[in-house]
């Protein structure tokens, strides 16, 4: 949209029009370069995870337990099982609290109160996840005297709460006021109107928010170090140490064996596919919704 050649320059320093145009071109080039720089890492990381992970990706990886260090073969079954259990339980614990909190923020708190709680929820979302792991350690591991899948699940639940709470809040905000009014005008008590009319109307958006939260906690490592700890055998007991994919990737990546490295790449591929599929799906749905509502 730069002015065509010969177009009289405006009052902003008409003298140096040539230099101004050069600056303009230079800056636009640099900004484009920044965009390019930003997407290069994504492409590189995805490419390497795919190239390195694919060869080691097989059924044994997710069905077999680890073999003694340095031996070939084996898999990361305990990590797959542990991740499923802890992410599942964490979601189960975290999302009801989060959705209810989101409802309170949007439907009940009122102007100032809503702003204050939103602020705190946003702050909670920014807390390093490793400190949430420490919290769960002090809250559950220390009193119970044992690292456990439960402690890991609780840590993950705390991480998913602010994500889902804010999404719920926003999605409820997209439900037109006329829907609430229609319900109130029928003599339906507010809470019934919210639960049976407003919440379903925001349902798809909230579900996608939950999926996004699941994708996030599925990739978390730091909060599990002091809670779930890790485990070489498949364990489904919540009271005992439990393995998780990110934990396993960390251990294998830091170890000296090629077979470990190969499995770390393959496990990363599984994790990345899972997380990206979830995030992409949710983002598309969220975007469609946001647009169709406005």
């Amino acid at each position: 949209m730069s002015a065509p050649a010969g177009f009289p320059a405006g009052p902003i320093g008409g003298r140096n029009i040539r230099r101004r145009r050069a600056t303009d071109r230079l800056m636009r080039g640099l900004l484009g370069l920044a965009a390019l720089l930003a997407i290069v890492p994504l492409v590189l990381v995805l490419a390497f995870v795919l190239i390195q992970g694919l060869p080691a990706l097989n059924l044994a990886l997710i069905t077999q337990s680890p073999v003694p260090a340095g031996f070939p073969g084996g898999g990361v079954a305990p990590a797959v099982v542990g991740t499923l259990i802890m992410v599942g339980l964490g979601t189960l614990i975290g999302t009801p609290v989060a959705v209810l909190a989101g409802i309170y923020i949007r439907e009940y708190a009122g102007g100032r109160g809503a702003t204050a709680i939103r602020f705190l929820v946003d702050v909670l979302a920014g807390v390093p996840t490793i400190t949430i792991g420490l919290f769960a350690y002090g809250l559950i591991v220390v009193p119970s005297g044992s690292f456990s899948g439960l402690a890991g699940a609780v840590a993950l639940a705390i991480i998913i709460v602010p994500i889902v709470a804010r999404i719920t809040d926003e999605m409820l905000g997209l439900v037109p006021g006329s829907v609430r009014e229609a319900a109130y005008a029928l003599g339906i008590p507010p809470w019934r109107a919210i639960v049976r009319v407003v919440l379903p109307a925001a349902g798809a958006g909230i579900v996608t928010g939950i999926l996004l939260g699941v994708a996030r906690i599925a990739g978390e490592t730091a909060p599990l170090i002091f809670t779930a700890l890790g485990n070489d055998t498949v364990s489904t007991s919540l009271g005992e140490p439990m393995d998780a994919l990110p934990l396993r990737i960390w251990v294998y990546a830091s170890g000296p064996y090629d077979s470990w490295h190969a499995q770390a790449w393959a496990a990363s591929l599984v994790l990345v596919l899972l997380v990206l599929a979830f995030s992409l799906l949710t983002r598309f749905i969220l975007r469609r919704r946001a647009r169709s509502r406005m």
Partner: peptide, 24 residues
């Protein structure tokens, strides 16, 4: 698409960046 790709950068788990960081 560029915006989406930048958002995707945030979706990749930290441990995967670590793995990539060590070996690549």
């Amino acid at each position: 698409p560029v915006g989406l790709m930048v958002e995707m950068l945030a979706a990749i788990p930290s441990v995967v960046y670590g793995l990539w960081g060590i070996f690549v």
